[in-house]
Write a protein that binds this DNA or RNA. Structure first.
Lengths: 189, 189
DNA sequence: ACAGTTTCTGACCGATCGGTCAGCTAGCGT
DNA sequence: ACGCTAGCTGACCGATCGGTCAGAAACTGT
């Protein structure tokens, strides 16, 4: 098993998410990994392929979460459980989420990003399904975009990153509050 | 008075904010404006200069808002007034804000963007000055990043853009709620 | 009609981009 | 010792990048 391929994925994800996909050259990724540009293209057929490999695990996980979500009925309790699950997902894949949220529209030609955008739409529908008013949809959008922004930009905002569990509980509180007033659909047992 | 220069500013801002600064070429901006790349560089000395010209009005306005903010004492009432003022700023300059929030860290070499980042830090300090806990700071970050995301990505999230006044009132409600629990500093008359 | 200025353009430059290719090097099974 | 493969590299390619420059085109006041 080669560690280089995984190192490249990690490095590329970090750079793509923080500096931007278009602004990150294969040369820079190679330098950060201590390799040559040719070696990067040996492990991954193209820059697109490297991006896909870097974000694939996050896509799979959120896709899995959404599938189990579709089976269970939507109640206040199941939604609160989901928020906790979702926060853990955001914490574990903050770079990928930041990449999707901020660069999604400009990366429409990459298939895996298209799929991510589709998943975000399904998430939005899930939350606003019972009462698709402007405010309810905006609540979800602010929660998602705000969390994604915070998790990678907190150091740029002037305060050092807090311990992980503190961040987690604060995020659960804020997102729960944001989404609490969004009604759940009426359903029969 | 030439309309070309202002057209270029508008077009460049739209492209920089949605497609990304690095991913937007001068050739594309010229095409969208119906001009040649040389003409773009006639009106603006460089790509950086074009970016600076495009975002300068937004910088000046938020800077002015922050100055008047520093003179008045911070109370619950003055903060609620400020939130409304801030929402109107976000609505009027959604593209610029989106650009700062999403691409700020990768554009540190452009002076005007550095100044914008500094202003964001002052805003964060303003809100968390009384109780700089992790949650209070995150509330402001989620509010800012979430609003910036919503205002340009709402069409990408599956629902068409709502009428402006509806968006405005929803945003005021959400941001007020997000920032309501953040205490104001105790002060004497 | 003329000169002067503003606006605009195509040709061109060096640098960098993503990507290809032939070949070097190190390890491993036999 | 041998061949095979995986990992890696520098040289090279066409395309595109931001930017320069000399000059055409259009508009101005006189």
């Amino acid at each position: 098993m080669s560690t280089s391929a995984e190192d490249l994925r990690t490095i590329a994800l970090e750079e793509f998410a923080t500096a931007g996909y278009a602004a990150t050259s294969l040369h820079r990724i190679a330098d950060l990994a201590g390799l040559s540009k040719s070696s990067v293209l040996y492990h991954y057929a193209s820059k697109d392929a490297l991006l896909e490999a870097a974000v694939a695990p996050a896509i799979e996980q959120i896709s899995r979460i959404l599938e189990t979500l579709a089976t269970r009925p939507v109640t206040k309790e199941s939604r609160n459980e989901f928020i906790i699950e979702f926060v853990d997902f955001l914490l574990a894949h903050r770079l990928e989420v930041h990449l999707f949220i901020n660069q999604g529209p400009s990366l429409v030609d990459v298939p895996v990003v298209d799929r991510a955008n589709e998943l975000v739409q399904r998430l939005a529908e899930f939350f606003a399904s019972a009462a698709p008013t402007t405010e309810h949809r905006m609540r979800f959008g602010v929660a998602l975009g705000g969390a994604a922004y915070m998790l990678v930009a907190q150091h740029a905002m002037g305060f050092e990153s807090a311990p992980e569990d503190e961040t987690r509980s604060a995020l659960v509180t804020i997102l729960s509050e944001l989404l609490a007033s969004v009604p759940v659909p009426a359903h029969q047992e």
